[in-house]
């Protein structure tokens, strides 16, 4: 049986998630025996045209060209997996979605007329159908391996959708919010990091995006009781890698609207 052909594509991103594939040092040789990596510019000059059995797509869509290119990737790929917060939620560059992009261009670039960009940064799933989303900033390389393994085995990937809290408790990490009053997005954030930040005595800042059915409004009400400034909470929800994910965005927008209402009265 021929090995499945894998391609790795990059859009607006920092490359960190595709590097996770190369970081699988112990497994990479064995993986290369099972999967034919035919397009991975970060790692190899080998460039083969589609079709591909598996496409890993990193990055968000921020240019008109990329909005076209992702359509071709979709046409070429049997199974399209988006990897990382940029691809699944728009990334940190989605901060522009709440701002005036032209103003950013004028501030940053000496000759903004040479820059061609969209006014928004949007996740891949806003443009084409996605078969599986792997969360994280960056993704967890073991979860990437799990996704590839599951595709090879013809089963569903096992990437839990529960909150970070469950993993804190499995590790025996004491809740930083309850014991120290530290603001933490863990109760509404998708696990995948293994509850890393709380184990280093700091709050979760939502790298893996919203968990399944997050109750963001209840958490932000509690943050208010902990005397966290509402602007800080809004920044925590919208100003991060997953800020444009629907659940973080809608709660951030709700608080922002509430606040501007407060200010106008």
């Amino acid at each position: 049986m021929p090995r499945p052909r894998l391609a790795v594509f990059k859009f607006a991103s920092c490359d960190g998630c595709q590097l996770s594939l190369l970081s699988l040092e112990d497994e990479l040789a064995a993986l290369a025996d099972k999967i034919d990596i035919v397009f991975f510019l970060e790692a190899s000059s080998r460039v083969e045209p589609g079709p591909y059995d598996i496409a890993l797509v990193e990055g968000s869509i921020t240019t008109a060209d990329d909005a076209q290119r992702i359509r071709q990737v979709r046409r070429d790929a049997e199974f399209l997996v988006t990897i990382g917060a940029c691809a699944t939620a728009g990334g940190i560059q989605a901060l522009r979605n709440w701002a005036d992009c032209d103003e950013f261009l004028a501030t940053v670039y000496a000759s903004p007329q040479y820059i061609q960009t969209l006014a928004t940064s949007t996740p891949i799933a806003s443009h084409v159908a996605v078969d599986f989303e792997l969360r994280g900033c960056p993704i967890n390389k073991q979860q990437l391996l799990e996704v590839l393994q599951s595709l090879l085995a013809g089963r569903r990937p096992r990437t839990p959708v529960h909150s970070v809290c469950l993993e804190c408790k499995r590790r025996g990490t004491v809740c930083v919010m309850v014991a120290q009053g530290t603001p933490c997005l863990g109760p509404i954030t998708h696990d995948g990091c293994g509850a890393l930040c709380p184990s280093f005595d700091r709050g979760c800042y939502g790298c893996f995006g919203p968990s399944q059915q997050p109750n963001a409004a209840s958490l932000t009400a509690q943050l208010r009781l902990l005397h966290v400034d509402t602007r800080t909470t809004i920044r925590g929800l919208r100003g991060s890698f997953n800020g444009f994910s629907p659940e973080f965005r809608s709660e951030g927008d709700r608080l922002a609207a509430e606040q501007s209402g407060d200010q106008s009265t």
Binding site: S163, C165, L166, K169, C175, G186, P187, N215, A217, S218
Partner: peptide, 13 residues
């Protein structure tokens, strides 16, 4: 349910 985060902490502890 409007307050519960379904975060699992109660069951874990």
């Amino acid at each position: 349910a409007t307050r519960c985060l379904s975060c699992t902490n109660c069951t874990m502890v």
